[in-house]
């Protein structure tokens, strides 16, 4: 389940009013989430939640649900 906070950060970066982000949603399904914009989203998530991801962790993400899980694991530490 994607949290409202994470969803808000992603949608703000993409200039989207609303989009149904699910666990299994992948970047190409979301308007504007291309390989270039991807870093802006990651940086925004890192800034908003004050976390730092490793490159290795970011490269294994497959879907938004993976990003949520990784974020949760960082926040729970």
């Amino acid at each position: 389940m994607i949290s409202q906070e994470l969803k808000a950060v992603i949608l703000k970066q993409l200039n989207l009013d609303d989009f149904d982000l699910k666990d299994e949603t992948i970047a190409p399904e979301v308007p504007g989430w291309d390989s270039l914009n991807h870093i802006n989203i990651i940086l925004a998530v890192e800034e908003k939640f004050n976390v730092k991801f490793k490159s290795y962790e970011l490269l294994r993400l497959k879907c938004v649900g993976d990003l949520q899980k990784m974020l949760d694991s960082k926040l729970n530490k």
Partner: peptide, 17 residues
């Protein structure tokens, strides 16, 4: 190739791309 380099230097924003 692209993604690993992009992620490593992501704090440079557009310049990392």
């Amino acid at each position: 190739l692209f993604r690993p380099i992009q992620m490593k230097y992501r704090t440079l924003r557009t310049f990392s791309n």
